[in-house]
Every structure is written in structure tokens, then in C-alpha cells.
Simulated assay, not measured.
Amino acid sequence: MTVYGIGTDLCDIRRIGATLERRGDRFAERVLGPNELQVWRARTARAPARGLRYLATRFSAKEAFSKAIGLGIRHPMTWRACEILNEPSGKPVIRLHGVLADWCAERGLVAHVTVTDETDYTASFVVVETT
């Protein structure tokens, strides 16, 4: 495999919280895919701070992925077409949908992601390889 691209992102959780406060659930619904939305709603119901951290890590990981594939947030890269989910072990994985999945498959791209969060920040790192 050959490295196609590397992306990283640092996100201020307080900024995501302020945006969520201003825009309400519409912000999360714009950024999160259907599977992520289910997790976000469940975490938010249990503890709003956990839901906020989840949203911030997903936002950051999608930014990092968009940088690694060299598109930024423009077609075919959309917020909802890229989901950051967790395997049963807890390992984060990228699941792509629709045109974005097709675009990456045509190029033989495989992505690896890691996310972390601390008190006020989240960080994400993505490596995209060609098969």
C-alpha cells in the first residue's frame, strides 16, 4: 500500500458547544450521518457533555478525512456521507456512503482514523492509503 494522504484536525469542544447551542439539533443533523445520530442522541440523553464530546470528535475526524483525501468539504465529500463509527472493540473506523464511497472505491482508497479528546479539545488523525 502507498500513502495517498494524511489529515489531522484539532477542534475546540467549546466552539462546537456554542454552535450546537445556537443552531440546536439541526447542527448535529447536518454533521452526523444516520448511525452517528443514533449514538449522539443516546449519549446526549445519558449525559449532555458526552454527547457534545462525541459530536466534536466526529466533526474533527471528518475534517481530517477531508484533508487526507484532498477535497475539503466539497463534493463528493459531505458531512453525512462520511461516518466515524466504532467497532465492538472501540476502535474508530470510517464508513463511507453513496457517491463518496464510490469515489474512494474507484481510487482504491482505504482510510484509517484515530480520535482523542481532552478537557477542551479533540484531535483526529487520518491516513488514507491506496490498495
Rank of each mutant, 00 (worst) to 15 (best):
residue 14 R to E: 13
residue 82 C to V: 15
residue 71 L to E: 07
residue 36 E to S: 04
residue 6 I to D: 06
residue 128 V to R: 04
residue 87 E to L: 14
residue 50 R to Q: 14
residue 107 R to D: 09
residue 30 R to W: 00
residue 83 E to T: 09
residue 8 T to W: 11
residue 97 H to L: 11
residue 59 F to A: 02
residue 9 D to F: 03
residue 60 S to G: 14
residue 76 P to T: 00
residue 83 E to Y: 05
residue 125 F to Q: 08
residue 59 F to E: 03
residue 10 L to Y: 06
residue 18 A to I: 07
residue 77 M to N: 07
residue 71 L to V: 01
residue 47 A to W: 09
residue 20 L to V: 03
residue 114 T to H: 10
residue 88 P to M: 10
residue 11 C to A: 10
residue 44 T to R: 15
residue 11 C to Q: 14
residue 109 L to E: 07
residue 102 D to E: 15
residue 108 G to T: 01
residue 9 D to K: 13
residue 64 A to V: 07
residue 107 R to A: 10
residue 14 R to T: 06
residue 64 A to K: 11
residue 113 V to F: 13
residue 49 A to Y: 01
residue 103 W to L: 01
residue 73 I to Y: 11
residue 99 V to P: 12
residue 42 A to Y: 01
residue 70 G to Q: 12
residue 36 E to Y: 00
residue 68 A to F: 01
residue 86 N to P: 00
residue 30 R to H: 03
residue 20 L to Q: 05
residue 73 I to W: 15
residue 93 V to G: 10
residue 56 A to D: 04
residue 25 D to Y: 09
residue 104 C to I: 01
residue 1 M to R: 15
residue 107 R to Y: 11
residue 19 T to N: 10
residue 61 A to F: 05
residue 38 Q to S: 11
residue 61 A to I: 08
residue 85 L to E: 12
residue 86 N to A: 10
residue 74 R to T: 02
residue 65 F to C: 02
residue 34 P to M: 02
residue 120 D to I: 07
residue 78 T to M: 14
residue 111 A to S: 15
residue 27 F to T: 08
residue 96 L to P: 06
residue 123 A to H: 13
residue 118 E to C: 09
residue 50 R to G: 11
residue 86 N to I: 01
residue 77 M to A: 14
residue 99 V to S: 14
residue 9 D to L: 10
residue 104 C to W: 08
residue 12 D to V: 04
residue 67 K to S: 14
residue 107 R to W: 12
residue 122 T to K: 01
residue 58 R to Y: 06
residue 104 C to K: 12
residue 42 A to Q: 12
residue 59 F to S: 03
residue 45 A to W: 04
residue 30 R to M: 13
residue 33 G to V: 09
residue 31 V to G: 06
residue 88 P to N: 11
residue 15 R to G: 05
residue 101 A to R: 14
residue 55 L to D: 01
residue 39 V to W: 01
residue 122 T to P: 09
residue 123 A to Y: 11
residue 72 G to L: 01
residue 106 E to S: 12
residue 6 I to H: 11
residue 112 H to P: 00
residue 8 T to Y: 12
residue 111 A to Y: 08
residue 63 E to W: 07
residue 38 Q to Y: 01
residue 24 G to I: 01
residue 55 L to W: 04
residue 25 D to P: 00
residue 53 R to N: 08
residue 73 I to D: 10
residue 1 M to A: 10
residue 53 R to V: 03
residue 114 T to Q: 13
residue 124 S to C: 09
residue 131 T to A: 10
residue 83 E to A: 05
residue 98 G to F: 00
residue 27 F to N: 07
residue 5 G to S: 02
residue 55 L to A: 03
residue 99 V to H: 12
residue 44 T to K: 15
residue 64 A to Y: 04
residue 68 A to P: 08
residue 105 A to N: 13
residue 42 A to L: 13
residue 96 L to A: 13
residue 52 L to E: 09
residue 118 E to Y: 05
residue 24 G to P: 02
residue 30 R to P: 00
residue 10 L to T: 03
residue 123 A to P: 00
residue 21 E to A: 14
residue 120 D to Q: 14
residue 18 A to N: 09
residue 10 L to V: 05
residue 32 L to G: 02
residue 94 I to D: 00
residue 83 E to W: 04
residue 26 R to K: 14
residue 7 G to Y: 00
residue 28 A to D: 02
residue 100 L to C: 11
residue 37 L to K: 12
residue 51 G to S: 05
residue 119 T to W: 09
residue 68 A to W: 04
